[in-house]
């Protein structure tokens, strides 16, 4: 399957078409989609700018004729601030698609766990037809629950874990006041699942340990940064 993707060995050039800020520090970047560039929803590419290469995950559907990315600008970062400021119409080199955080057709219930921009692979999966999944998304504030309405429409269950105290009225269904780790430890029904984890490694490490303890027969697919 993955090895049959076209354009795998070529470096592709994309043109920046549009940038929309979704929160104070996170934006969606729209780029042209190179001809013959195919990917599996959940895969990422590597952007090369100057001496730096950084990976970003497509949030567009595999059928869209453009590529979309969800990028957090890290003030001290080397590449994300450049992508935040670069003029539209600039051309950038991107690698072929890579990564295995893609739909694995597991017989167990799919549980997507993301923090921050870690939601990216799941957006692409949903836009490409994924349904019947549980999504646990951790963010500081509601404004960081990117693509919330779209996800709400398609998730079987959507738990939004917010960490800033003013952010959430705990009585609202689908919201949890606290981190995803705390939700998984205290409130998620024990059982056997196919977990897909995406976000910073610290979260993945903690969640992996929780899964080992509370959901031992589950499978885990993860991608971290």
């Amino acid at each position: 399957m993955a090895e049959k993707l076209k354009g795998e060995n070529a470096v592709n050039r994309v043109t920046l078409l549009d940038r929309v800020w979704l929160s104070e520090d996170t934006f969606q970047l729209k780029c042209t989609r190179p001809e013959e560039f195919t990917f599996l929803p959940g895969q990422h590419v590597s952007f090369s700018v100057g001496n730096f290469c950084r990976e970003y995950t497509m949030v567009s559907a595999d059928t869209d004729d453009f590529l979309l990315f969800l990028i957090k600008r890290l003030p001290e970062g080397k590449l994300s601030p450049q992508l935040a400021d670069m003029p539209l119409q600039t051309q950038i080199a991107i690698s072929p698609p890579a990564g295995y955080l893609v739909n694995r057709n597991s017989p167990d219930m799919q549980v997507f766990v993301a923090t921050g921009t870690g939601i990216a692979p799941f957006i692409s999966m949903v836009r490409s037809g994924a349904r019947d999944f549980t999504l646990i998304h951790g963010a500081r504030d509601r404004v960081e629950l990117f693509y919330e309405k779209e996800l709400q429409k398609h998730a079987a269950s959507y738990i939004r874990c917010l960490t800033t105290s003013k952010a959430v009225n705990c009585n609202l269904e689908g919201f949890y006041s606290g981190r995803v780790t705390s939700f998984l430890k205290k409130s998620f029904t024990e059982g056997r699942y196919a977990f897909y984890l995406c976000g910073v490694w610290e979260m993945i490490q903690e969640v992996t340990h929780i899964i080992d303890e509370r959901f031992p027969a589950s499978v885990i697919y993860s991608e971290g940064y």
Binding site: R104, W201, I204, Q205, T208, D212, V219, I220, Y221, Y225
Partner: peptide, 21 residues
Amino acid sequence: MKVYTGGGDKGKTSLFSGERV
């Protein structure tokens, strides 16, 4: 991309097929 992940610090690791062993 980070080389160290810490995911296996407690004696288990993930197979490519996702199982923890």
